[in-house]
Amino acid sequence: MTRKITHASLYVKDQNEALRFYTEKLGFEVRADITNGDFRWLTVSSKDQPDFEVVLLPLRASDWSLSQDDVEVLTRLLEAGKLGGPVMRTDDIHKAYEEWKEKGVEFLSPPTDQPWGVDAVFKDNSGNIYSLQQRKK
């Protein structure tokens, strides 16, 4: 028996802009992209981890999902960096930092030594905050 997480969702302000960020800046791949009614199921994943998909969930009011109030609250939390965030691991944090910074990814903290290795912090173009780690060998 296996039990794996295959998808985790992130709220994004605009799916098209998020798709551009995750592909052109981070180098992620489009994994699923289907539209049903006005809902677009859009997922991306790192090339190194095709079986873990990040669902880019639109932060938008609709009859079935979020109310306008929900959207306002979530947008405020997202912009304040209060919604938690994913952690990514790399085997070369300095290279990743230089590459992504060059492409315009906003870093809140450059690679910084930590007891467990080196850690940097960046955010996506919706405001989701990521930790980028390189563990000690």
Binding site: T23, V30, I34
Partner: peptide
């Protein structure tokens, strides 16, 4: 959100992704 050629560039060729919600 992407041009057709860019969309192709960033979409893995194999295997075809399951298209379900």
């Amino acid at each position: 959100g992407l041009s057709p050629s860019s969309y192709r560039k960033w979409s893995p060729k194999q295997p075809p992704p399951p298209q379900y919600i």
